[in-house]
């Protein structure tokens, strides 16, 4: 084996051992399109905001939040995550959630709301699950920070 091949092999092994492959950002805009592109993401985030507003358990976390800015950044983030033509300009998940004392129950509620809204919008189930796959690992940066 030549030296040149080694990094590729290491990358492949890492990929297999950590299943890092599936965690990487989307390289195509397939998911972005399946979520309904810009209009679909706006509808998704608006639906999510309505669910949050009605959830007594988590709504207090948003009492000092600039909602229009939060909305814009969340759309931007989902757009970038799903492979759309956007660049997320907000803080890291860890930065933006530190100090909020977000519990696992709060996080679970938000995931449930997201699932509800995606189902309501009749987003393809594969796209729903792909988006959840991208968001689930954020748990460690959001909860109990």
């Amino acid at each position: 084996m030549t030296v040149k091949q080694t990094p590729l092999l290491v990358a492949l092994l890492l990929c297999l051992s950590l299943s890092a492959c599936s965690q990487q950002p989307q390289k195509t805009d397939q998911l972005y399109l399946a979520l309904g592109a810009q209009a679909g993401l706006e509808q998704l985030v608006d639906g999510l905001l309505l669910e949050i507003e009605q959830d007594q358990q988590i709504v207090h976390h948003f009492q000092d939040t600039d909602i229009p800015r939060f909305r814009r950044l969340l759309i931007e983030q989902l757009c970038e995550l799903s492979g759309g033509p956007c660049t997320y300009t907000g803080a890291t998940m860890q930065e933006s959630h530190t100090g909020f004392q977000i519990s696992q129950a709060d996080f679970d509620n938000l995931v449930t709301h997201l699932m509800t809204v995606m189902q309501r919008q009749k987003i393809d189930i594969k796209a729903q699950n792909q988006l959840l796959a991208l968001l689930a690992p954020m748990y460690k940066d959001v909860v109990y920070r």
Binding site: D124, I125, K126, A127, N129, Q130, L132, A133, A136
Partner: peptide, 9 residues
Amino acid sequence: YFAAVAGRN
């Protein structure tokens, strides 16, 4: 495992 089998979890 999300979206692991035909897009199903």
